[in-house]
């Protein structure tokens, strides 16, 4: 027993030190007025930071944008991912090439591809297509408000990269299902649509739930890509970037912590539901 705990110790220290401690610290700070600009240390202010946020219109805007961003990208990624997976699940000529084309966005380093997207959508130097892109950008921004184009590019990038991953992930899911289960449905119905909803979707449910789970968690945490694609000029604030501005640029660590923790209960509830879908309780098994 002692040896077991000894062997577990490095992992335990790592988990506690790298995850539990920062999280606990953040929760504590969200109840204080901690700021490096203050002369004094963190002072407990109770729920003041949270109360202040709930009354802040900018916060609600960030929530709507964040949830909208997460929902829209997840839906789009799921739809595209399922389409990719179904396409690749059957043999055809050139399948390997198509597989590579679909997998590449995920396999390619994000930091490089995000710059590629940024330069494509907002060309930094005059190119053949920069007038066109420029016009497009000002049209979009003109119609939807400044920063819309940047936000749209974040969304597109997220979908482009994520649907690649979800497609390959679901393909693995389909391949794990015995082909007879699909053949059996083929014997009973001609309608691919009916077979898809009555057989494919239920059979892939655990994989779909896990895909949504991963998509949501990354969407909420997708700060780096937003930053890279918008160069920090955040007009459509998401919770993550707003908290960053508040803490790093504004020095208001207390409110920033509260802001970043605000959506956690909601996210946890959704994730718990999804978790049940991809990992059903053991007692249901024989």
């Amino acid at each position: 027993m002692a040896t077991a705990y000894l062997l577990l110790a490095p992992a335990t220290v790592l988990l506690l030190g790298m995850l539990a401690y920062p999280l606990g610290w953040e929760v504590w700070i969200s109840f204080t007025d901690f700021s490096p600009l203050n002369d004094h240390g963190p002072r407990f202010v109770g729920l003041e930071n949270y109360r202040h946020l709930l009354a802040d219109a900018e916060f609600w805007r960030a929530v709507v944008v964040t949830v909208g961003f997460a929902a829209a990208t997840t839906l789009a990624k799921l739809a595209l991912g399922v389409a990719f997976a179904l396409l690749l699940a059957r043999p055809f000529r050139g399948r390997t090439l198509v597989f590579l084309a679909i997998f590449l966005p995920w396999a390619y380093p994000a930091s490089v591809s995000v710059i590629g997207w940024y330069w494509t959508l907002s060309p930094p130097i005059p190119t053949a297509y920069s007038p066109f892109m420029g016009t497009l950008k000002y049209t979009v921004d003109g119609a939807l408000g400044g920063g819309a184009w940047a936000f749209l590019s974040v969304t597109l990038f997220n979908i482009w990269r994520g649907s690649s991953f979800i497609g390959v992930f679901l393909l693995a899911g389909i391949n794990a299902v015995p082909p007879e289960l699909f053949e059996c449905a083929l014997l009973e119905s001609r309608s691919a649509w009916r077979r898809f909803w009555l057989v494919t979707v239920p059979l892939l449910r655990p994989f779909l739930a896990l895909a949504v789970f991963l998509s949501l968690t990354t969407a909420f945490a997708d700060l780096a890509n937003v930053w890279l694609l918008t160069a920090g000029r955040v007009v459509f604030p998401v919770v993550g970037t707003q908290a960053y501005w508040l803490a790093i640029k504004g020095g208001q660590f207390g409110p920033a912590s509260a802001l970043s923790l605000m959506l956690v209960p909601f996210l946890l509830a959704v994730l718990a539901l999804l978790f049940r879908a991809f990992d059903p309780p053991a007692e249901a098994r024989a």
Partner: peptide
């Protein structure tokens, strides 16, 4: 198409749908 051939097939691995009850599998 298979559906219109008026055949019914029993597979080696049974090919039962794990998410359906026995009744729903038979009624499928």
């Amino acid at each position: 198409p298979p559906k219109d051939r008026d055949i019914a097939m029993v597979f080696q691995n049974y090919a039962l749908y794990p998410h359906m009850t026995v009744y729903d599998n038979m009624a499928f």
